[in-house]
Simulated scan of single mutants.
Amino acid sequence: MTSGLRIVPVTDDATLLDWQRVHNEIIPTAPLSVDDIRERLTRNVLEVAYDGDVLVGCSTVRPPSEETAAVTVIARVLPAYRRRGFGDAIYQHCLQRGQRLGDTFETQILASNEDGLRFAKAHGFVEVETYLLPGDTIPFVELRLGE
């Protein structure tokens, strides 16, 4: 199922562009430029997931900040590769990374991503708030683990 899964850090242009592709496909309302992603790399752990050589997803682990005491973990899987165990493997990987940074976890999911919301809730996340970015029409849902 996920035996060929490789999760690698964003370290070069190829992995950066793969991370961007997954992010922007799953969050079309808030696309990120290459420069946006490079800036995020200065403060977050960004990784890309491959099944062998095939891009299947990406992840973000964001340390606690002034805005939140929680570690943010985000696992994204391209729609064509969902329901094959990749999301769970990426999420578990993120959680292990995040445990080095804190013990409270949250995630943010675009409200229109029903698969992502269902996945998060099935893994113990509960909705704590929804928010709309300036100019957007689809809100993000913030969820916290074990609230």
Rank of each mutant, 00 (worst) to 15 (best):
S112M: 05
H93T: 01
N44R: 12
S33T: 15
E127H: 08
I90N: 03
N24K: 08
L95I: 02
G85L: 08
R21W: 06
V71L: 06
V56D: 09
L16F: 11
Q92P: 04
A14T: 04
H93A: 02
R43N: 05
A111E: 15
V22W: 11
T42K: 15
A120W: 02
A49G: 07
V73Y: 06
A14F: 01
V73R: 14
I138T: 10
E114K: 02
A14L: 14
F125D: 01
I109G: 13
D18C: 11
R76F: 10
A49Q: 10
T72H: 09
E47W: 11
Y131I: 05
C58K: 07
G146L: 07
C94V: 04
Q99C: 06
T11M: 10
D51P: 09
L32P: 01
M1H: 15
G85W: 06
R84A: 04
G98D: 04
A69Y: 10
T104G: 03
F105M: 01
V34L: 12
Y81F: 14
G85V: 03
T137G: 11
T107W: 11
Y91I: 00
T2M: 14
E66F: 09
D36M: 08
V128L: 09
L32G: 04
I27F: 11
L132N: 02
L110K: 09
P63I: 03
